[in-house]
């Protein structure tokens, strides 16, 4: 007991020192995490925002089914997504066996981006759908009456729901930056290539490198905290208006 408490405080002090020194191994891991999750988020936004807008504003056959699938996706265990992507991308899998330059091999950042994108885009779509459905339905007719095309009407509704759409994007980021199971499976936690914050924490803790694990944990906490602060501020804005 005594020892573990000491380990905790020593770890914390050492972690802060590592962060303060800008330890190169640490920086590499942080940069890769942000790059992978950032790219996955960009793709998720490009898919999720139009999908959410279509589901929230459109009326088409199969809409209910797509919404049901999207809700399933929002609550899907990330590690199972990882498993699917693993099987798809493995050499004998349906995508991996194509040997196409568009399909990233397993244990690469590209594979991690795909897994994270699949985890995040239903979140982005779901929150975007809720946001556009919250816009006054009569606004669409008013905007059309002022001469908007269908396309301009949709863009105007998205602009009205802009705070909710930003919340959707940030929620997507929160869902992937702290995810460990899927990136562990498809990335393989290879040092210098696919090691990100979460997988590094797992490894360093197992190996007893508590200082480094703690430093990584603090950074991840900081990112998560930053995300939540932005979310709260944005949501505060919606409630004020």
């Amino acid at each position: 007991m005594e020892k573990s408490i000491n380990t905790f405080w020593q770890g914390l002090v050492e972690a802060i020192r590592l962060i303060g020194n800008g330890d190169s191994g640490l920086v590499e891991i942080v940069v890769l995490s942000l790059r992978v999750s950032g790219l996955a988020l960009l793709l998720s936004t490009l898919i999720g925002v139009p999908l959410g807008a279509a589901l929230g504003l459109g009326r088409f056959i199969g809409r209910k089914l797509v919404i049901a699938l999207m809700y399933t996706g929002m609550g899907f265990p990330p590690v199972v997504v990882g498993l699917f992507v693993y099987l798809l991308l493995s050499r004998s899998g349906p995508l991996g066996s194509l040997d196409s330059p568009l399909v990233p091999p397993l244990f690469t950042p590209g594979a991690m981006v795909i897994a994270q994108c699949i985890i995040a885009f239903p979140l982005v779509a779901g929150f975007t759908m809720a946001a556009v459905m919250g816009v006054d339905p009569q606004l669409r007719q008013q905007v059309q009456s002022l001469g908007a095309t269908a396309w301009q009407t949709t863009l105007t509704v998205l602009a009205e729901a802009r705070i909710g759409v930003m919340v959707a994007i940030i929620a997507g980021f929160g869902g992937i930056i702290s995810e460990v199971g899927a990136v562990m499976l498809v990335g393989g936690n290879i040092e210098g290539r696919t090691r990100v914050l979460t997988t590094a924490i797992v490894l360093e803790t197992r190996q007893g490198n508590f200082e480094l694990a703690m430093a990584l944990g603090l950074i991840l906490l900081g990112i998560a905290f930053f995300i939540n602060v932005i979310m709260l501020r944005l949501q505060g804005k919606t409630f004020d208006s």
């Binding site: 006054d136 009569q138 606004l139 008013q142 009456s145 002022l146 001469g147 095309t149 105007t156 208006s241």
Partner: peptide
């Protein structure tokens, strides 16, 4: 046609302004 529809507009009972 859009150009025809754009020659008419409506002011509704409830002013629906953009944010």
């Amino acid at each position: 046609p859009l150009a025809v529809r754009r020659r008419v507009t409506t002011v509704a009972q409830r002013p629906i302004l953009l944010n």
